[in-house]
Design a protein around this nucleic acid. Structure first.
Lengths: 227, 227
DNA sequence: GCAAATTTCAAACATTTGATTGAAACGAAT
DNA sequence: ATTCGTTTCAATCAAATGTTTGAAATTTGC
């Protein structure tokens, strides 16, 4: 994905009302095309055809193709954020809060509060990171991860920067993310099995059980007890 | 990634000795380029330049660009398989066998027994699946997953097609795969933390502890005991 | 209604890309 | 040394691609 490289094109116009509508259509279609095909394979002609606008509109509104991509990405990140901060619930036992978090996280991972194409775009970014990934990690992933690490620390009775806490936090989030990243594999793997039609909620429930069991057991082992 | 679509080009030549060397160079370089840039963005000119061969060689040896891609993919899958079947060790307690499996799996996931570019190519395939993904799931992923499910079933005292077993197996493998799929995120996220320089072995050890704790605890809960 | 700003348009452009082609070079077998 | 098969070569081609440009159309503000 050679596109999101910096360009010398920095001028894009502030839109009037007509411009706003055109921009919105372009962003939505481009999001789909970039996600589906990747930056290089997605063409400005197809994007414009589908959006019903003239091909020069991309340069007029976004500077160039790369500018369009960057705006698409920014839009996706903003949408993620509009869902609100992905924080650990403030009320309840530690176990309840973990379960609550996992339900919200799983919903978020699965598709709530962002355009359908946004996760795929994120996955592409993870294969070929640009500076945009740094921004995403800093403003979204890190706060979420370390917020959860606080709760894991509580459950383990350790400091939240402890290596065991961080690894255990990774163990928790990875279970959720696998269903997103490996969705095509999961579909094929589970076809015809008893978990083929699992809902995000069912998965969240299981992950909560598995993780809470692990954490409480590890905590007891720390106290010298066999679990 | 529009490339791996079927083409009408089926003729490629069986190689003599010179051809074997040329093919090998092309496959290696193409693997890197396709992984790094994706099919569309990788160009036959750059691949040939780097391999030190004439541009017509691709059509001569592989039929066309798509044919080269398919052969690259086949090569990667073969290399994975040459590492031997990813099976649960036959000896030891169930816990020891799970730990042993996780170490081998983690090594495999992290980079042993295949070209450095192969996992990235797999990840691209997971974003835009082709028929090649079906083959990979069938011949590699499924046997590994359900082999592990047998061990998880043993640890849980349930049938190996039970929903809880399958979900728990997913919980185990996902912890390992996260480090591969989210490698760029993990690097950024853990920078400066106590787990920044974790080895695959350390991660496998933790995942084993976490998972064994979870499984034994879940088993006790099944028996009516609090864990 | 008018002038200025904004937006869109169609044609054109330069470059890139995968594929093709006839010939040359090379290797293998007799 | 010769013939045949294999492999590589350089030039060429057709199509696709992102970008540009001057003008026309539309919108906006007074």
């Amino acid at each position: 994905m050679a596109a999101p490289a910096p360009t010398n094109r920095t001028i894009a116009h502030d839109p009037g009302e007509q411009g706003v509508a055109t921009r919105a259509r372009l962003l939505e279609v481009a999001g789909e095309e970039f996600a589906k095909r990747g930056f290089q394979d997605a063409t400005v002609r197809e994007i414009c055809r589908r959006a019903g606008v003239n091909i020069a509109s991309i340069n007029y509104h976004f500077g160039d193709k790369a500018g369009l991509y960057r705006e698409v990405f920014r839009t996706a990140v903003m949408r993620f954020k509009e869902g609100g901060k992905l924080a650990v619930p403030p009320q309840g036992t530690a176990e309840e809060r973990l379960k609550g978090f996992l339900h919200v996280f799983m919903d978020r991972v699965t598709g709530k509060n962002h355009p359908a194409w946004a996760p795929t775009l994120m996955m592409r970014e993870m294969i070929e990171p640009t500076e945009a990934l740094d921004e995403v990690v800093q403003s979204m992933i890190r706060p979420t991860f370390f917020g959860l690490a606080g709760l894991v620390a509580e459950l383990l009775g350790r400091a939240s920067d402890d290596a065991v806490v961080l690894r255990a936090t990774a163990s928790v989030v990875s279970q959720c993310l696998w269903y997103r990243h490996s969705a095509h594999v999961v579909k094929r793997l589970f076809e015809g099995t008893s978990v083929q039609d699992d809902t995000p909620g069912q998965r969240a429930d299981h992950i909560a059980s598995f993780s809470i069991a692990a954490l409480s057991c590890l905590r007891q082992q720390d106290g010298g007890a066999a679990c």
